[in-house]
Structures are given as C-alpha cells and as structure tokens.
C-alpha cells in the first residue's frame, strides 16, 4: 500500500452513481481490495472514504471505481471532474480467496446495490483463471441495477432480482439462488443481504465469503474504528478490523447481529 496522487481521467455520472477512471502510479490490487479516497477539498469531509476497486489496467496506469452518492463524502467523490486531483491510499485489506478455487467448483457471486463493483473485478479475475461463476444481482428497482452490461459482456450467466419486481425476479436477491448448492459463494452488499446469505449457506461444504462494510477513519489498521465481532478457531469471540483482517471474511466466522 501507499499514498497515490491520482488525477481524474474520466467521470461518468448516471443516476446516483459515478464511474471514476483515475490515473496514477499505483500498485496492482487483488479482487476485494479497496482504496481510501479523498479529494483536495480540505477538512470537510475530513476522512477519506473506503471504495473497492472495480477494475484496473496497471499497464496503462488506470484504475476504476464506481461510487454511489449516499452521503457527504461519497457525494463529493461523485462530483469530481476530469483533471481533478484525488489522493488514494491503497490497495488495502485482504482479498477474495480465489486461489482456493478449481474450475470444477460451482461458484456463485452475489451482489446487492453498490456491492456489485468489486464483484465485477472478482469475476474478471476468476475468468482469467478459467472459472465461470454464476452471478446474482439484486437491487431495489430496475434503475438501481448496475453493471449488467459489463457482466454479460464477459459471457457470464447473470440473474437479476428487484424488490419492486421492475426487473428480473420480484423480491430479494436471495430468492434467486436458494436452490443452488455451490462450492463457493462470494457476496458483497447490504448487511441484511449478507446475513441472509450466511444463514442460508451455514453448512459444511459451502465456502461462503462476504465483504463487510464499516465506517473507518484510516483504512490501514491504526484507528481501530472498523472492528467487528468474529469467532476464532476455538469459537472464541474477538474483534477484527474490517480494513486489515477484512474486508473479506468467511461468513461462518462473523458474529451476525
């Protein structure tokens, strides 16, 4: 990890989202890793925001993020323009354990809302390893679904669900895959979605990994602001930092609240 001075190469806005293409001298990241991003707007908002990598082109010096405007910090990020300077500390955190997977495994990827971008990067990396996962995406309405085109372009089987039924199956994304029996599940999205997935697949033989989100100040392990309760091998409870020991956790190790 290091602090990278990025320049905004492109900022493409749609609905509440903004796809940022940043140029800079950065280190390659693994799927699931993130950056702490902060523009040069001074002391408010004070803290950088943790944003997962959606894609990168190391040779060309370009890295991609998809940001949703959900508050003051993310709003400022979605309002960046071409040529703006932005600092990014990263890549941070652990990654989805893709090395454990063989091409015989049934792999499911489940994304909800703004949880989808890091999963797109995961999908790309799995494809490079010859693995063809099944992708399940959920959102509130049709307009909230993101990256379907990019996911399908990779030749991936994508199934959709919306809470209002405006696209795909009506209901939560979990309705799409209750019947499956995967070897691996990788999920990123709202807490309640991750919790429901963890509950559904809390059985032997299923390796379920979730990407957790917490408020964090530093992103590199010193503020201890992002600690969550987990279980160790002996089922003892303790705190782990989402920024360092996570953001990817074995769902069986998370103490769901």
């Amino acid at each position: 990890m290091k602090v990278v001075d990025f320049t905004v190469e492109r900022a493409k806005r749609f609905n509440l989202y903004c796809e940022l293409v940043l140029r800079g001298d950065f280190k390659p990241s693994l799927p699931g890793q993130f950056y702490m991003l902060k523009g040069d707007w001074g002391y408010h908002p004070l803290l950088p925001r943790p944003i997962s990598v959606m894609d990168e082109d190391v040779k060309d010096g370009k890295i991609f993020f998809l940001i949703k405007n959900v508050g003051e910090g993310s709003r400022r990020l979605t309002e960046l323009k071409r040529g703006d300077k932005i600092s990014g500390t990263g890549p941070l955190g652990n990654c989805f354990p893709i090395d454990k997977i063989s091409n015989k495994d049934f792999v499911a990827i489940v994304g909800g809302g703004v949880g989808v971008p890091p999963l797109y990067y995961l999908l790309k990396k799995l494809n490079e390893n010859g693995i063809k996962p099944h992708f399940f995406e959920g959102a509130k309405t049709k307009g909230d679904l993101i990256l379907q085109g990019k996911i399908r372009k990779l030749g991936c089987d994508l199934k959709l669900a919306t809470e209002d039924g405006s696209c795909g199956k009506k209901g939560f994304v979990t309705e799409l895959f209750k019947w499956i029996n995967p070897d691996f599940i990788f999920a990123c999205g709202p807490y309640e979605m991750l919790k429901a997935i963890a509950k559904t697949f809390d059985k032997d033989g299923v390796n379920c990994y979730v990407s957790l989100e917490e408020r964090m100040a530093c992103g590199y392990g010193i503020c201890l602001g992002c600690s969550v309760r987990t279980y160790d091998e002996r089922s003892n409870e303790h705190f782990e930092r989402v920024c360092c020991e996570g953001p990817i956790f074995d769902s069986k190790r998370v103490k769901w609240i």
Binding site: Y43, H44, P45, L46, L47, G73, E214, R215, M216, A217, C223, L224, G225, C226, S227, V228, R229
Partner: peptide
C-alpha cells in the same frame, strides 16, 4: 462495540 467512530464537521 461498533459503531466506534463518527465524522463531524472538520473532525471526528
């Protein structure tokens, strides 16, 4: 327990 931090204007 979490939440442990909250951002405020020019502070936390």
């Amino acid at each position: 327990n979490s939440p442990r931090i909250w951002e405020t204007p020019s502070g936390m």
